[in-house]
Simulated scan of single mutants.
Amino acid sequence: MATKGFDSTTDLGAIEGILAGVDFDEFLARPRTSHVVAERDGGERLVLTISDELQGVLARVETAELTVAARHWVEEQGSGDTDAIGGLLHELAELARGAQRRGERLYCWICV
């Protein structure tokens, strides 16, 4: 899945806050939140961890909740495309479910 203009730390923290009521400082304090596991080209290409807690939330959330979360996220940001964010959240949830079934973890690849 590819997206532009989505910050894996702040935006995923906001999404988890919306879906699970998690405070952003708590989100950041988790052991697997946005830690660099691979870096190339002076930081222009990165692989970051996605917390187990966020992966669990995404794997368990209902489809209707994702749509509501996308709408809420766009309202909080003051701009954005609800359908695009909703689509992104649905894809993330599917990835999380698949990873959970296989006993795997989620990562985010960033290319600036």
Rank of each mutant, 00 (worst) to 15 (best):
M1G: 09
T3P: 00
T3M: 11
K4G: 08
G5W: 02
G5T: 01
G5K: 09
F6P: 00
D7P: 07
D7Y: 08
T9N: 15
L12R: 07
L12I: 14
L12C: 12
G13S: 09
A14P: 00
I15T: 13
E16H: 02
G17R: 09
G17P: 06
I18S: 06
I18K: 02
L19M: 08
A20R: 03
G21L: 02
V22Y: 01
V22W: 01
D23K: 12
D23M: 05
E26P: 00
E26R: 08
E26V: 11
F27I: 06
L28W: 12
R30K: 11
P31V: 06
P31A: 05
P31T: 02
R32F: 06
R32K: 09
V37Q: 02
V37W: 06
A38L: 05
E39S: 12
E39V: 04
D41P: 06
G42P: 13
E44G: 14
E44V: 01
E44S: 14
L46F: 03
L46E: 05
L48N: 03
L48A: 00
T49R: 04
T49L: 05
S51E: 06
D52Q: 12
D52S: 13
D52L: 14
D52V: 13
D52H: 12
E53Q: 10
L54S: 02
L54T: 07
Q55F: 05
G56A: 11
G56P: 01
V57L: 11
L58M: 12
V61T: 15
E62L: 11
E62M: 08
T63S: 15
T63W: 15
A64R: 15
A64D: 15
L66D: 03
L66T: 00
A69Q: 01
A69W: 00
A70H: 10
R71V: 11
H72T: 15
H72R: 10
W73H: 08
W73F: 14
E75L: 13
E75Y: 03
E75R: 12
E76P: 00
E76K: 11
Q77H: 13
G78Y: 03
S79D: 09
D81G: 04
D81A: 08
T82E: 15
D83F: 10
D83C: 02
A84T: 04
I85M: 03
I85V: 15
I85N: 04
I85P: 01
G86D: 05
G87W: 03
L89C: 10
L89D: 05
L89Y: 05
H90V: 05
H90I: 04
H90N: 06
E91F: 09
E91G: 11
A93Y: 02
E94R: 09
E94P: 00
L95S: 03
L95W: 07
A96D: 01
A96I: 14
R97T: 06
R97D: 00
G98L: 07
A99N: 12
A99Q: 13
A99L: 11
Q100W: 15
R101E: 14
R101G: 02
R101Y: 07
R102C: 07
E104M: 14
E104S: 13
R105Q: 14
L106P: 02
L106D: 02
Y107V: 08
C108H: 13
I110L: 13
V112R: 14
V112Q: 10
